[in-house]
Structures are given as structure tokens and as C-alpha cells.
């Protein structure tokens, strides 16, 4: 039972990080119908950003803020340089381009930082444990608490922004029908920029949290995490904000439970099982768990 509680905490922790990344996939897809495969690599950019800033002597909070700004800048440059010129070129063209951008980013960082695995060392405070109960055997690290508080806060904040603010309403309108939204005076470019700012910032925070938790990082770390977060967005129903968040958490929990509970030898195939979940969900709910029944586009 304590083992189960422990795995659940690990799963929620990984799932929260997936959720942050999946939201970025989902809001950009909602507006542009673009599957931005370079999105996962932004968390790698964020990790290197934070790592360099810490090495330069910045304190952790400032390094994180700096890393978010760097990542947002990367996100905006990618949108402006790679995706905007292809806005009307069709979904296949931008999809291929996003893969190219992903490969470009990984190789750029390979060139500059070498493929070496590096360690993202946080102060000892983060690995201190709190005893939750169960005769002292259920514990939670401060890092886990930080992950839960930060992701919970960010998801609540972004969801409020999307529900209430002018840009948020404009964003939902564009997701439903960008042609009509433009005719209502909505500046699509402003909404797209806003989506990339939000998505990149969330990916940056996710990157720092991920590297803080799992310590080791390298230039290709973003790809697999990105693919899994994308799967999470699809399971939740791509384009849906709540779906992305729920799909992320669900996938993270399942991944850890697979790793812990599958019979000896099968546990190492946790990732394969994660994608099996994706296939099963899509078989029964082709639009994902929270997806709209029918998307209209014109």
C-alpha cells in the first residue's frame, strides 16, 4: 500500500509536468491546427537556459525567470521565422516544418553543448523528505510539493486567463473559427503570439521542474518527453485545455504504475505501454476524452 502511494506520488509528479507541456501543444493546435513537434525541445532549451544562468551565479528564482524569458524568445522566433510564412500552406507543410525545427534545435544544442549528459543540481532543500504517514514509509520530497504547487497554480492561472480575458476569449473564438474571428476584428497574429508565449512559458517551467526532479539532461531530452506530452494532449482531446491537463496527469500516473507494477522484464517497456494506452483510447474515443465531437473549420 505504501509502495502504491509512493508510485502514485511519482506518477502525479511526472503527470503534472506532462500536463504543462501538453497544454502548449493543445492551445497552439486549437488555433493553427499545427502539431508543433518542436514544442518538446523548448523544455530542453529552458533547462540549458536555467543551467547557464545558475552557473553565472544567478539565484534559482531569477534563473528560472530568465530561463522562461529565453524560452519564450525561442518560441516566438520559431513562430515568426518558421510557421508564420507557412500559415496558408496547409497542415502537412507546417507539420514537417515543426519536425525540422525540432531537429535543428537539438543539433544546435548538440553543437554548442556537446551530447554530454549533464547534471542539474538543485540545493539540498528540494530533496528533503516530509513524512506523510503510513508508519513513516510514505514520504514526499519538497521537490514534489514544489511541482504540485507550481503546476497547479499555473494551470489555474492559465485557465482563468483563457476563460476571462480578452485575449483568452479571442483565443477560444479563433480555435472555433478563425475566419469569423478575423472578421470580428480579432488580430489572429496577436492571438497566435499569445498562444506561443503561454505555451513556451509553460514548457520552460516544465523543463526546469523535470530537470530538477530527474537531474540529468542533454540536448535530445525534449524529444521523447514532447512526444509523450503530445500523446497526453491527444488522449485528453487535442485542442481542449482541460483535456490536455487531465491527459497529462493520467499519462504520467499510468507510466509510473506500468514501470512499478508490470511483471519483471515488462516494466522497462513502460513507454511502449504508454503509447498502447493512446491507441486504446483513440479506438474508443477518436476525439480524445474531452475532445469536441465534431470540429468545424473554414
Amino acid at each position: 500500500m505504501d509502495f502504491f502511494a509512493g508510485s502514485l506520488i511519482s506518477g502525479l509528479q511526472l503527470g503534472s509536468i506532462y500536463a504543462l507541456i501538453a497544454i502548449g501543444y493543445s492551445i497552439v493546435y486549437g488555433i493553427l491546427r499545427l502539431i508543433n513537434f518542436a514544442h518538446g525541445d523548448l523544455l530542453m532549451v529552458a533547462t540549458y537556459g536555467a543551467w547557464i544562468l545558475i552557473a553565472r551565479g544567478l539565484s534559482l528564482p531569477f534563473a528560472v525567470i530568465g530561463s522562461v524569458l529565453i524560452t519564450v524568445a525561442f518560441g516566438l522566433v520559431i513562430e515568426r521565422a518558421a510557421y508564420r510564412p507557412l500559415r496558408d500552406a496547409g497542415e502537412e507543410a507546417t507539420l514537417i516544418t515543426s519536425l525540422a525545427v525540432s531537429i535543428f534545435l537539438q543539433n544546435l544544442f548538440l553543437m554548442v553543448f556537446t551530447p554530454k549528459n549533464r547534471a542539474f543540481a538543485l540545493p539540498g532543500f528540494f530533496s528533503e523528505k516530509l513524512v506523510l504517514g503510513g508508519a513513516g514509509s510514505i514520504t514526499i520530497t519538497n521537490m514534489s510539493i514544489v511541482i504540485f504547487v507550481v503546476t497547479g497554480g499555473l494551470i489555474a492561472a492559465v485557465s482563468l486567463i483563457i476563460k476571462k480575458t480578452r485575449l483568452g476569449i479571442a483565443m477560444r473564438a479563433c480555435a472555433e473559427n478563425s475566419t469569423a474571428a478575423k472578421l470580428m476584428g480579432v488580430n489572429l497574429n496577436a492571438v497566435v503570439v499569445f498562444a506561443f508565449v503561454v505555451g513556451s512559458a509553460l514548457a520552460a517551467v516544465a523543463g526546469v521542474l523535470y530537470s530538477g526532479q530527474y537531474v540529468s539532461f542533454n540536448p535530445s531530452m525534449g524529444f521523447m518527453i514532447g512526444i509523450k506530452a503530445f500523446a497526453a494532449a491527444v488522449i485528453g482531446g487535442i485542442g481542449s485545455f482541460a483535456g490536455a491537463a487531465a491527459g497529462g496527469v493520467l499519462l504520467g500516473v499510468l507510466e509510473i504504475l506500468f514501470a512499478c507494477y508490470l511483471p519483471e522484464g515488462a516494466g522497462v517497456y513502460q513507454t511502449a505501454f504508454v503509447f498502447l494506452v493512446l491507441i486504446v483510447v483513440l479506438l474508443f474515443k477518436p476525439n480524445g476524452l474531452f475532445g469536441a465531437a465534431e470540429g468545424r473549420r473554414s
Partner: peptide
């Protein structure tokens, strides 16, 4: 210059008020 569409293009998932607010915000 504002237009409506032959086949409706309201934002179905937004509230009626938000549909109108979007346009009002443009000004």
C-alpha cells in the same frame, strides 16, 4: 464593415455575451 454568414458562424462554445464581447473589444 461587418458581415454575417449564410451558414452560421457564431462561436458555439462561447456564451452569447462573449460572442458579442469579442467584437466589442475590437474597438
Amino acid at each position: 464593415v461587418a458581415r454575417t454568414f449564410q451558414n452560421l458562424r457564431i462561436f458555439g462554445k462561447l456564451s452569447a455575451l462573449d460572442n458579442v464581447r469579442i467584437a466589442a473589444q475590437a474597438r
